[in-house]
Structures are given as C-alpha cells and as structure tokens.
C-alpha cells in the first residue's frame, strides 16, 4: 500500500530501522505500513476493533509475516511486556479516544516503552471556527453522545497532548506541521458520515433517521474542504 505522506514525514527524522515498534490504534495500518517500509524489526499493530485488525492484516500483512503482529487489545491494558518497545506511534489516534481514556493510554504506552524509548503523536489541531467540517464533526459527536454518552471526536491543541505525555516522563524533541491545510476529501467526509450512520443504527428509527439524513445533507453540502492543520510531536522517554 502507499504510505501516507503524513506518516512518511512524521517518521523521516526518527530512528525506525531495526526498532521494535508499536502502532497504538492501528486503524487501517497507515503508520504500520510506514514503520515496516522504514525497516522496523517488528511492528505490533494494536487495535480494539476486529474490522481494523482484519484490514491491517489484509493491507500490510503480505510479505511481512515475520515482522508484523496485529493485536486486538484495549490500549489501556495491552498484552505487551513492560519496557519492551523502542518506538511507539499514535497516528491520528487521540482525536478518536474517549477523553477519559487519554491518560490511562498514555500510562500504558509509557509502561511498554523502553526507558530510552521514542514516541510520535500525530493529530489534528482544533479546526478553525468557520470550518464547514465542524458541522459534520459536531453531528458525529451528537450521535456518539446519544448512543454511549461520550464524543466520537476530540481535537487537542498540540500543547495539550504534549503536556499529557510530559506528565508521564516524556520529553518533546520536536514539533512539525504535517498538513497545512488538511484536505478533508469527499472520501473522508463519507467515512465520517458512516460513523454517524453507525451510531444512528443503534438508536430508535425516530432518532436515527433524522441523524442519518442530516449527515447525508452535510456531506452533500460540504463536498470537500481544506482547513486546519495536522501536527506531529516527537518525544523521547527520559532515562531512569
């Protein structure tokens, strides 16, 4: 698969070759593909979503059987040993975490990282107030809150995510802008609308149907939009 430019750029100034890596929140395996392409000795692709696990195996499994381990696990409690990973990535992860999970996951990633380990956290800055995509993201959050009481998306300023990891002993080594602007394509907006549809399906029709209709209308109205930025933070864990 083609490694996204965002991943390539985030890893470009990092030591990946020969490293034992962990992609936290593997999604469709974007960072996993980048880590393997950059010569990682082994990549643990961890996700709590069975569909994502299958997608990662399908997209990047071929030819990497000896280097790729796809783990279905909760990121707050992975089966990985303490001090076992050289390099951790959280590429586009934090914005989809329930906010209450952020610090337990930071704690767990710190536990599995070696004492001199490295970490890359890539995420979206808070979109500008006048961005049209905000309307779709807000609808997504409404749907998520109605179903399980927590938002689907939370955008953190880079300083905030940095502070979360600094609290666990990480030091920020660099900050970089990955995308400026962020191209929210029709495919991305469809994927977000699909999240709304997923929540809507779990609600009574009287609630779910208007949500779905609103999502469809928003996707049609927005089409695509370039807005906001995506950033990358690189950390190292202080010795001792």
């Amino acid at each position: 698969m083609d490694v996204p430019e965002t991943v390539t750029a985030a890893l470009a100034d990092r030591q990946v070759e020969g490293q034992v890596c962990l992609e936290a929140g593997a999604g469709v395996g974007n960072a996993t593909a980048g880590l393997l392409a950059a010569g990682a000795e082994r990549v643990y692709a961890v996700t709590d979503d069975a569909d994502h696990a299958a997608t990662v195996r399908e997209r990047v499994g071929d030819g990497n059987a000896d280097r790729l381990v796809v783990l279905e696990a909760d990121l707050r409690a992975t089966p990985l040993a303490t001090d076992s990973v050289d390099f951790v990535t959280a590429h586009g992860l934090c914005n989809v975490l329930p906010p209450a999970d952020l610090t337990p996951i930071a704690a767990e990633l710190t536990r599995v990282a070696k004492p001199d380990g490295h970490l890359v956290v890539d995420d979206y800055a808070v979109p500008p107030a006048d961005a049209a995509v905000n309307r779709l993201f807000a609808l997504e959050n409404t749907a998520a809150r109605m179903v399980d009481g927590r938002p689907a998306l939370t955008f953190y300023p880079p300083a905030m995510l940095a502070a979360v990891f600094v609290d666990y002993g990480w030091t920020v080594e660099r900050k970089k802008t990955l995308l400026d602007p962020v191209p929210w394509t029709e495919a991305h907006l469809d994927a977000h609308a699909e999240v709304v549809r997923g929540y809507a399906a779990r609600l009574p029709d009287s609630l779910g149907e208007p949500l779905t209709a609103m999502a469809d209308d928003l996707v049609a109205a927005i089409g695509s939009e370039r807005t906001g930025t995506m950033y990358s933070l690189a950390f190292r864990l202080a010795d001792g």
Binding site: T6, A9, G27, T177, L178, L179, V182, A187, D190, A191
Partner: peptide
C-alpha cells in the same frame, strides 16, 4: 506541509478502499 496536503488530497480522491477518517 502544503505539498503533503496536495499529495494526500490526490491520494484520497484517487483511493479505491477503504474509506478512512484520517490522513
């Protein structure tokens, strides 16, 4: 960052499957 944005936009406009939330 802008060059990457153009590449990512083209890649997703061109992309077969799967649909992704992220870049």
């Amino acid at each position: 960052a802008r060059q990457r944005a153009l590449i990512e936009e083209a890649r997703h406009n061109d992309s077969p499957v799967p649909e992704q939330l992220h870049h």
